[in-house]
Design a protein around this nucleic acid. Structure first.
Lengths: 223, 223
DNA sequence: CTTTACTTTTAAGCAAATTTTAAGCTTGGT
DNA sequence: ACCAAGCTTAAAATTTGCTTAAAAGTAAAG
């Protein structure tokens, strides 16, 4: 689970935060002044830092600035009583990622922490796989048991669409709509031709038929 | 300069935003309802989206959700009169990156936009390298096996962009958008010409072809 | 202001790959 | 056995990308 550093000198607040966040499953570290906070932040890798503005030794804004100068990119959320627009701007400009004015709602804080924890982009959704067939949407590459096969654009789009809707029958209309961008009623044999060519290309590498036809309706890929 | 999409139905507000942000040097696009907004957001690559909550056709929260479902990671900042904690949480949970309650300070908005525009990278990306090809973005210098080759500005930008997106197909639209700053549909052979010239210059020093073409889509540099 | 060197864009011909059409053939269900 | 739906194949139509050359645009130097 994610690891959060709280840099806050008022024990009441830090205890309250620690308790609440622990309950949510976060691992918490505390620092009671700017100096200790900076040191902890530099020597460990936290997922988020909650920062007070007014702190003993070094002010929060200065801690943030020094962190960024040192190349540390850990998301910083200010939690502070300094509530003017000017303060907010200074806080953000020092390198913080968000700025919450006290008193704040704990639930909102939770949600804003989650925003910072979001992965910039998970590749997870860009790779589909099914029985040894791997589709990498970024590279537009298809591998069967690690052997690459070349698909044309439409073949790739069609196969992706079928795998994306695994275990669900894709009707001809849906396929025409989503893969061919044809939104009206249209009758031609294109789909048949492409299904055929996909099956052929797959079979040339591995003797399976993953695309079943559902007579009168469309096609399906089952687990 | 960064490109911002404003999805907002009240003309007064969108005009105000457009004027203020243009003055700051941002390029602005407008959408007056959720449907148009979603469409624009999907078909272009913006750097930030400013989103109203209550919109004709599709609500802002739904637009955000659909964007994220489709894998679009563009930062979204809600600008809305819905000011309860519960609304904020719903907004952020739908996939937004920040949430500002009306009336907000324009200066704070500006600063929060800048937060979203911050690149999550440091000096690492100033030097790209790939199979003996080294690009120094600061010096705008390209070396292949330590022999320098001269690239024109556009050639340099294009090669940088491709290397920055290593292992991901760069579509022609994306390239036109990011390298040529052309944000509308445009058909010309410029990209082909530049790819050709890049390949030629690289080959004149080392007999490799790092730029693969993905027919019907774009180009990719693979590891 | 004009020249010159260079960069960027346009345009056109060509070759090759992709996509669509069409026609005959197979198959499953009644 | 019949018929419609689906399969297979090959050829036609279309699109795409590569390559060149020339035109248009820019900026520095004379």
């Amino acid at each position: 689970m994610a690891h959060i550093l709280i840099i806050e000198d008022e024990k009441g607040i830090s205890d309250f935060l620690k308790e609440g966040l622990s309950e949510e499953g976060y691992e918490i570290s505390l620092a009671s002044d700017g100096e200790k906070g900076l040191q902890k932040a530099m020597n460990n890798s936290f997922d988020v830092i909650l920062m007070d503005w007014m702190l003993p030794k070094i002010q929060g804004i200065e801690v943030t600035r020094k962190l960024r100068e040192a190349g540390n990119q850990t998301p910083v959320i200010f939690l502070t009583a300094k509530d003017t627009v000017q303060d907010t701007i200074l806080g953000l400009r020092s390198g913080a990622n968000d700025y919450l004015k006290k008193p704040f709602s704990f639930d909102e804080l939770l949600e804003r922490i989650k925003v910072q924890l979001r992965k910039p982009q998970s590749k997870i959704n860009h790779i589909l796989s099914h029985e040894g067939i791997k589709i990498d949407k970024d590279k537009r590459e298809v591998k069967i048991d690690n052997r690459e096969i070349h698909l044309t654009q439409k073949e790739f789009d069609l196969l992706s669409y079928l795998l994306q809707n695994k275990n669900k029958v894709c009707t001809r209309d849906e396929i025409l709509d989503k893969v061919w961008d044809i939104h009206f009623d249209y009758d031609s044999g294109v789909i048949d031709v492409y299904i055929n060519s996909l099956r052929k290309k797959i079979k040339s590498v591995k003797d399976v038929n993953i695309i079943e036809t559902v007579r009168g309706v469309g096609y399906i890929v089952k687990d």
